[in-house]
Design a protein around this nucleic acid. Sequence first.
RNA 1: GCCCGAGUAGCUCAGUUGGCAGAGCAGCUGUCUUGUAAACAGCAGGUCGUCGGUUCGAUUCCGACCUCGGGCUCCA
Length: 666
Amino acid sequence: MSDISITLPDGSVRSLPEGATGTDLAASIGRRLAKDAVVVEVDGEPRDLAAPLPDGATVRIVTDREPDAAEYLRHSTAHVLAQAVLELWPGATFAGGPAIENGFYYDFELPGGGTFTDEDLERIDAKMREIIAADQPFERFELPIGEARELMADHPYKRVFMDLAASGDDADGEVGGGDTISFYRNTPAFVDMCLGPHVPSTGRLKHFRLTRHGGAYFRGSEANPMLQRVYAVAFPTKAELEEFLHRQEEAAKRDHRKLGVELDLFSFPEEVGSGLAVFHPKGGIVRRLMEDYSRQRHEEAGYEFVYSPHITKADLFQTSGHLDWFADGMFPPMELDPHGHDQGDGGGEEGTGTSYYLKPMNCPFHILIFRSRQRSYRELPLRMFEFGTVYRYEKSGVVHGLTRVRGMTQDDAHIFTTKEQMTDELGTILAFVLDLLRDYGLDDFYLELSTKPEGKAVGTDEEWAEATDALRRVAESMDIDLVLDEGGGAFYGPKISVQARDAIGRTWQMSTIQVDFQLPQRFDLSYVGADGERHRPIMIHRALFGSVERFFGVLVEHYAGAFPAWLAPEQVRVLPVADAHADHAHAVAHELRGHGFRVAVVGADETLGNRIRRAKGEKLPYVLVVGDDDVAHDTVGVNPRGGEVERNVPLQSFAERLAGDIASKR
RNA sequence: GCCCGAGUAGCUCAGUUGGCAGAGCAGCUGUCUUGUAAACAGCAGGUCGUCGGUUCGAUUCCGACCUCGGGCUCCA
């Protein structure tokens, strides 16, 4: 029997008997390695450890300490989940179950259209741990498609995957492109169709937790049946699992919906309607400061401020294309004078009066402002800015806190440029947007380029390509990661969106910048060029906050409710130790208010300790305590958020410190 | 919109064979006058999400609707 030679990633070569497997290779190197091995990569292709190695291959042994091991562990654990559910619910069938970020899921159809309950998750978890304790092997085998279909006779969704793959569509990644279909058998009763690879046996799988269950359409389409999905998280080590669960708890504490109530910032009165927020006085201060600073920066950057109404006749949205492409996202129209005569202004069938719509976007109004008179190339780029409140009829299941609402205010601008100016202007806009976001405390970004949405877009391929290229060039010049979002553009043009990572690493879509060749055409916009001829301007849509509401919610979570001094509703609270110090406390407050600071005094009706505790709960930047010493020397005791108490601080030096915090936006 | 779950005091939550509704915190009134994260006492506070049904009687059982949470789809 001849030997085979295997090259390891470090370049060394090992000789093994013919037919040797990854397991053999690992064992020949070391016991520890054999124990930790999860799968092997043969010439870059992942394979089971049990598969024979081909002569001359380069082989990397993936252990559970390496980052890419988690995906294999998750996928294998998904099989255990499927086995558990199929055992617990005789007659159940299963669809797909991929590894995802931090874990995996699996979709099932339970007999009689059943659904999972929270208690079911506990039963499934217990069954999974039995399967893992039994240390069942994952045994691979392959069948021709005909036999594969027979094997999966009771599992129609698996057969759909096979049929799709046979017709060249393996978008789900369930089957692979070969002539045969691979399976993994754990027990005589449980076989799952799968590309693999898998860990050698279920005993390798330990650190998972079932987290949620819910409905999910088969293959993600509303046209398909709804299946029952179970989600789980899974990690190679217990420490990583616990770390993840801990991060989840920390994120829950930052939830802006919870903090919005606790800090008295905003609410969603049921009487008003789903997805419609009201801002309370404290939230109002934060919001006004956010908006004021934005206005100031926009003014400095050459934007002009405009205003437009909340409702308009249907014709405007007919011209803009919104009624053709965005009608699902709009509130139904108000029918005015429904029995009157058609005024000839359109917006309804003959004799049915006029329809008015709540506006879902601000762009048509800004276009009308542009078109209100003849424009010269000397005016371009013309930058119009509005805090424009728009209304969108979001489907009932998607409304979520301030991040997904039905009424929102966009910090919306539309820039009209010549074709020649477009790329420069896009670069200026992107730099402006990133700079401003940094002032709001977000400084970790990546960019996403969204291209033409097939089937729901207006305009020619050439126009789309040109606009997309311009955006790509600008994005690439920023030295920030760029990812492609195929088909994610708006109906009128491609876009760059800025994704920001917050204090605990979650990403949020913030600003969008969209190039639009379409609306200028639809509204027949023009300007007079240096040549005396009429030319078509190009329009750029951009919002920096996205919506003020969403941005507000993101900032609450980013700062965990502890706003930096420049945004804090109350920057300083002065606490007299006893009533005798009340006059001094008020004098201190008066002095600080004179500097423009937001200050309150809370008298000595309660113990000092309790008043401190309340102020800390409200996450104020500074609490000042004044007692006998401070009255005598015109000082204050400074208790800063997240810092040590300082005594006998001269009032003036505290004022300078706070002014510094505010100026630096910290 | 679809699948699942939940709505009890301002907040967090108890409340089972269907029989007059509970706690802590917050609020209000007193007392206490305090040097850095919970002083003491008292009072008040609820159409038990809404509407209908079953019942002698419904917070409790049934139905519809509204709102919220999780998931799918969608999205600023």
